[in-house]
């Protein structure tokens, strides 16, 4: 797949066709998601209106983990097959990934304060999510920390792969240890323990964030490709 996409002309053609589609999907899903989250969904029997924080908190948490998985796959493609486009893909996804992790942490804090009675606790779920955020920051610092951008690629991709161990810890922390954070409501073996009227805004917001993420990734990848061409041309100019 990477070989097929690696041709820059073909990459440009495919992404140019895909970009308007994902932008449209994202805009529609965001509008529908906002409507469902605030007007067409009930308050929770225990938590009241604070349940509406879930519709941004949980999709952001899913996307923070999905983004990391995608970056780790790209890192394998880069480290084993040395495919520059895989490196560019991982770099492109880092900023939205860090954004998702940040949204998860901050909205979680604003949810925890009224419901749990605290902004933050060092339980296994919250701590492992914070580590995910730091992994994104560490990746970006390593990837962009060198004067010649490509020199940072290898260590940054290695960091990504090492950090993969954190993903099952985030997901299963609530089952393995006593945590303040509750267990999973949607991705659980015996089906969601969440009312359909509340599941719908959750899934629509997840679609909105996923399509937004694809649009940003395309934008960032084409920017990074242009930047590499710029630095090649600059090098050539200084030679001649």
């Amino acid at each position: 797949m990477f070989d097929y996409l690696a041709n820059p002309t073909r990459f440009r053609k495919i992404t140019a066709a895909l970009l308007p589609v994902v932008v449209m999907v994202s805009a529609i899903a965001f509008a529908l998601g906002l409507y469902l989250a605030f007007f067409a969904s009930p308050a929770d029997y225990q938590q009241g209106e604070t349940v509406r924080i879930m519709y941004i908190h949980v999709p952001a948490a899913w996307m923070a983990m999905l983004t990391y998985i995608l970056m780790a796959v790209a890192a394998i493609f880069y480290l084993v097959w040395r495919h520059p486009l895989a490196d560019i893909g991982a770099r492109a996804m880092a900023l939205p990934g860090a954004g998702f992790a940040l949204i998860t942490l901050l909205t979680g804090s604003f949810w925890g304060r009224p419901i749990w009675g605290t902004w933050w606790v060092w339980d296994a779920r919250l701590t492992s999510m914070l580590i995910l955020f730091f992994l994104y920051l560490g990746y970006m610092a390593l990837a962009d920390g060198f004067e010649r951008a490509e020199r940072g690629s290898k260590p940054a991709c290695l960091l990504l792969l090492v950090g993969v161990i954190n993903l099952p810890i985030i997901k299963f922390s609530v089952d393995w240890w006593n945590t303040l954070h509750q267990g999973s409501s949607v991705l659980r073996l015996d089906g969601p323990s969440i009312d359909p009227a509340m599941l719908k805004p959750l899934l629509v917001m997840a679609l909105a964030m996923l399509s937004w993420f694809i649009a940003i990734t395309i934008l960032q990848m084409s920017r990074l490709i242009m930047q590499r061409r710029v630095s090649n041309l600059e090098a050539r100019e200084s030679w001649s």
Binding site: I56, H57, L106, F110
Partner: peptide, 10 residues
């Protein structure tokens, strides 16, 4: 405060 701050930040 909590609901609107969360959505505002997001």
């Amino acid at each position: 405060l909590y609901v609107w701050s969360s959505w505002g930040i997001g």
